[in-house]
């Protein structure tokens, strides 16, 4: 936010990439792409690409992190060095550490952690190509990877970021809209129960605008939810045929 662009980002209700204001970028998800992982998924939201891998439940190391009554959940969000216009120095940054934390907290409510006492569930999220909305894309992919790992869940988690661009509310911000827009609101939700598990906001919005954006995001998450479920079902479709 807060940057200034000489370029108009919305012209006659059309955005730079040709989308309408309430239009999401093309979303595709594939489950089960990393053989070593217990669960995995690859997601593309327009040009934003993320790979999610889940390992666990497995032994907790070091042992003092062990929780007696539930699993210890840890997500690590990371950006590949070549995922951004200017090379991004490998390794954690203050930004990635904060994102990892809010993602962990945004996924935890969906998982029956209490079914896996004294274990650890690791979620690794790698952004391979960044074009805004990476934390939301990562969460959406993570939920699919968790389900692909066979981990017991109350629901999936779907996530998207919307905001305000050139004075208008827009769904699923792309890079320039994120950089030069007036506000950005990432949300994650369990679509079945409508419980919001992640909410951040930066920029400047009126109460009405903010409420409208939240509503817009939640509606989009219902669509994302369908794509998530379909990705999982595609990955296991052979299983419904009778074996013997």
């Amino acid at each position: 936010m807060g940057g200034t662009s000489t370029e108009k980002l919305v012209i006659k209700n059309k955005r730079l990439d040709g989308r309408k204001l309430n239009e999401m970028r093309k979303l595709s998800i594939k489950a089960g792409i990393i053989p070593n992982a217990d669960g995995s998924a690859e997601l593309a939201l327009g040009e934003t690409k993320v790979i999610a891998a889940v390992y666990g439940p497995r032994e907790v190391l070091p042992k003092h992190l062990q929780k007696q009554d539930r699993a210890y959940l840890e997500c690590i969000y990371d950006m590949a060095s070549f995922s951004t216009p200017e090379r991004n120095r490998p390794g954690p940054s203050r930004r990635s550490v904060e994102i990892s934390k809010v993602i962990t907290e945004g996924l935890a409510p969906a998982i029956f952690l209490e079914k896996y006492p004294k274990t650890k569930i690791d979620i690794y999220l790698e952004i391979t190509n960044a074009n805004a909305g990476t934390r939301c894309a990562a969460m959406t992919a993570a939920a699919v990877a968790l389900a692909d790992a066979g981990i017991e869940m109350r629901d999936l988690v779907a996530s998207i970021a919307s905001g305000k661009v050139d004075g208008q509310l827009a769904l699923d911000l792309a890079q320039k809209e994120d950089n030069f827009g007036e506000a950005d609101v990432p949300i994650a939700v369990m679509p079945r129960t409508k419980e919001i598990t992640l909410l951040q906001m930066d920029g400047d919005l009126t109460k009405e605008e903010l409420q409208k954006i939240i509503q817009m995001n939640l509606k989009a998450c219902d669509e994302i939810y369908k794509v998530q479920k379909q990705a999982l079902k595609n990955s296991y479709k052979g299983a419904s045929k009778n074996g013997e």
Partner: peptide, 26 residues
């Protein structure tokens, strides 16, 4: 070139081994 943001990139799969390599110029 699977990575748009990279100047050049390649994904190599050998059996189940998979490696993504990106080249960045500065």
């Amino acid at each position: 070139n699977p990575i748009i943001r990279a100047n050049g990139s390649a994904k190599v799969t050998i059996g189940k081994t998979e490696v993504l390599v990106g080249v960045k110029l500065d």
